[in-house]
C-alpha cells in the first residue's frame, strides 16, 4: 500500500492494515511471554519483520489484487543467518512474520468487501462528492463556451439514469468517418476537473460531459460508467448534428 501526500487515501484499507499490524504485535508479545528463555527484543522485532519477506503470487480477486505468499524467503534467510547459534529462540518469530502475510491477505479481502459495502462505485456522487471547487474544461475544438452551476449540477446527480455504453465503439466511428454525426467532433468535449470523491474512498475518476450536456462519462481506474440526465448538466449551445 502506497500513500502519497495529497492523494485520496482508501481509509478502509488503511484501517485494516493498521488493525493487522496490531494483531501481529499482539501475537509477538504473547509468544514472547510464553518463552522460558527470552530472546533479545530488538532482534525479535527484526526477525518478525524479515520473516514477512516472501515470494508472492498476485491473484486478481473481486477487482483487487490479493497476494498469496508461497515461498518463505525471509525465514530461509534468517535460518542461514542464525544457523545453530540461537535459531531455536527466533524460529517461532520468523514463522510468525511469514504467517502475517496470510493475515494481511485476509485484511485485503475483508477491507475490499467492506469498501464495496460502504462506497457505491456505480453512484456518480461517490466520485463527485464535492464539486464546489471543480471546473469545466473544453478538451476539443468542438467544445463551446459553457456555463455551469456547481450546486445545480450536484442536485441533478441523484436524478441520473444509467446509460447504455455497449455501443461505445460506434461513438468512436461516429467521430472518425465522414457523413457520420460527430465527424471531426468529439462526443464528450468537456472534462470536469477538480471534483473531490467521497471522503476515505480513495476512488478517483476523470469525468467527461457529453456535447448535448446531458451525458456523464465517468472513467474510473477499473472501468467506465455512463449516465444520462433529463435536464442539461451544463448550460451552453448544444450543437445540433
Amino acid at each position: 500500500m502506497q500513500i502519497v501526500f495529497g492523494q485520496p487515501v482508501n481509509m478502509v484499507h488503511l484501517a485494516g492494515v493498521l488493525a493487522g499490524w496490531c494483531i501481529v504485535l499482539y501475537l509477538t508479545i504473547r509468544q514472547y511471554r510464553k518463552l522460558p528463555k527470552k530472546p533479545v527484543v530488538w532482534k525479535m522485532v527484526i526477525v518478525v519483520w524479515v520473516g514477512l519477506f516472501a515470494f508472492n503470487l498476485n491473484l486478481p480477486m473481486f477487482g483487487q489484487t490479493a497476494k498469496l505468499s508461497i515461498l518463505p524467503l525471509g525465514v530461509w534467510i534468517l535460518y542461514l543467518f542464525f544457523r545453530k547459534r540461537s535459531w531455536d529462540a527466533y524460529r517461532r518469530f520468523a514463522w510468525l512474520g511469514f504467517a502475517a502475510n496470510y493475515l494481511f491477505l485476509i485484511v485485503t479481502l475483508l477491507s475490499g468487501a467492506a469498501h464495496q459495502a460502504i462506497y457505491d462505485k456505480r453512484d456518480p456522487s461517490t466520485y463527485l462528492a464535492d464539486v464546489g471547487k471543480a471546473e469545466i474544461i473544453g478538451i476539443h475544438p468542438s467544445a463551446q463556451a459553457v456555463v455551469w452551476d456547481p450546486s445545480e449540477f450536484a442536485s441533478l446527480l441523484d436524478t441520473l439514469q444509467i446509460g447504455d455504453m455497449s455501443d461505445s465503439a460506434d461513438w468512436y466511428y461516429q467521430s472518425k468517418f465522414e457523413h457520420e454525426p460527430y465527424y471531426q467532433h468529439e462526443r464528450f468535449p468537456y472534462a470536469l476537473v477538480g471534483a473531490k470523491p467521497s471522503w476515505g474512498s480513495g476512488l478517483r475518476a476523470v469525468v467527461y460531459i457529453e456535447m448535448d450536456g446531458k451525458g456523464l462519462l465517468i472513467a474510473a481506474a477499473d472501468r467506465s460508467y455512463y449516465f444520462r440526465s433529463e435536464k442539461p448538466l451544463i448550460n451552453g449551445e448544444a450543437v445540433e448534428s
Binding site: W171, F188, S224
Partner: peptide
Amino acid sequence: AGRSDGIDYYTPRIQ
C-alpha cells in the same frame, strides 16, 4: 473505445 473483459470503455479525444 472498445470492450475488454466484457467491460465497455471510451476515452474522449483531447486536442
